[in-house]
Design a protein around this nucleic acid. Structure first.
Lengths: 216, 216
DNA sequence: ATAAATACCATACATTTGTATGGTACAAAA
DNA sequence: TTTTGTACCATACAAATGTATGGTATTTAT
């Protein structure tokens, strides 16, 4: 189990992850220093040593940009989950990250997307379940039938989106939930983004392994 | 549209991609040279110049490992799908990639994992559906109750794994399918890996947007 | 009270790294 | 035939890079 990081160390690690996952190129000491306004590389050097000691990265000695994320080899990388979102009844969405899930290393986010954990079962007919992580892109125009995340009276919902002449309808796949109809002028409605993908980790299995034997 | 690459250039580009996506660190000229057995960096230097000229990479001048993949700066990154795997009845698994899916940029794979597209519905009670992409890690020891991919008589299956004294059981979540019982000595059985995650793209929506209005 | 960890700065140095330049050999195109 | 492109080799060099060492100030644990 990796040890706790200090504030500064965490910031630096986040930057490393951002650079490695985002650009594909780990930064040099000089670049990290520049990014944080440090006057010299030795400072970064020491922070990296500390982060490495705590087990989050591995440094290839003598090699330029020789920073590897060790967490990556464990297949999981911490990603912030911005909030929980109701597939059924609205839930509160938090301004900051409420949690960090261990998205597998398959987890490089498009830089403008973010993650939300789904609570509730109103999307079960669309094969999205409570506990799933949805990848939300805020910079896409919604088309009819797409699954979107929207804020409604300070709560967030995940629903299927339909735009009509003068109103927007948010429909659950699950017939137990009533469609939400929004007049276009409705003030507290805001479209957050479009669900571009769903990810579910199999690691901490939410399923109880039922010892089902033989035929039924 | 990028121009055609020569054989050598393609090999080098493949290596670059492998390094950037796999390790997260682009190689230096020296490393590329070593990998291909070149006696000096200038050779690589010239190949890279050619590849850049043809538009596949961008080089940050003067910067160590300053190689970026130009094709990558989009939302989706092509990833090879190694085969299709049956959640219900066994299907054939192909030695090479059968397809390339556009995994979202959230998609950087752990280097030893690979993707399989699921066909069939025997795992629907585990919320895995036909068309989903499962992320499979071949280097983990399976624990009871985990979902695994296994090869059985040249066909691959996705099932829940249970190890008993002298036999292994592969069980479907879906009661319609019979459990598969394998004697430990069974020759043609091979465990491929453990399903560590499921990804589903919402992009090419498999669902027909049903115009369901009002209450039912 | 003292030790240890954190968070920086500055300077120095050997290597690594990218790049420039020049050369050879070969095949295909003009 | 000459030119162009590909595929290598060798040497040289400035800048980038990681690392070592030493220092100060502050906070946290003992």
């Amino acid at each position: 189990m990796p040890k706790e990081l200090t504030e500064t160390q965490k910031k630096i690690l986040d930057y490393l992850i951002e650079r490695i996952k985002g650009k594909g190129i780990p930064p040099t000491l000089a670049e990290v220093a520049a990014h944080f306004g440090y006057r010299n590389r030795a400072t970064v050097q020491q922070h990296l040593a500390a982060i490495e000691k705590k087990g989050y990265i591995r440094k290839n000695p003598k090699l330029a940009r020789g920073i590897e994320l060790t967490l990556e080899d464990k297949f999981f990388v911490p990603r912030p989950v911005l909030g929980e979102v109701a597939a059924g009844n609205p839930l509160i969405i938090y301004p900051d990250a409420i949690d960090t899930i261990e998205l597998p290393t398959i987890a490089r986010m498009p830089k403008d997307s973010f993650l939300l954990r789904v609570k509730g079962d109103s999307l079960k007919d669309a094969y999205i379940f409570s506990g799933d992580i949805v990848i939300v892109n805020p910079n896409l125009e919604p088309r009819n039938g797409q699954i979107v995340v929207a804020i409604l009276d300070d709560a967030a919902v995940v629903k299927r989106f339909y735009k009509k002449r003068s109103q927007i309808e948010l429909i659950s796949e699950n017939p137990e939930y009533e469609p939400i109809i929004i007049d276009k002028k409705y003030p507290s409605f805001k479209l957050v983004g479009i669900v571009v993908g769903v990810y579910r980790s199999m690691d901490a299995s939410p399923f109880i392994p039922i010892q089902r034997r033989g035929k039924l």
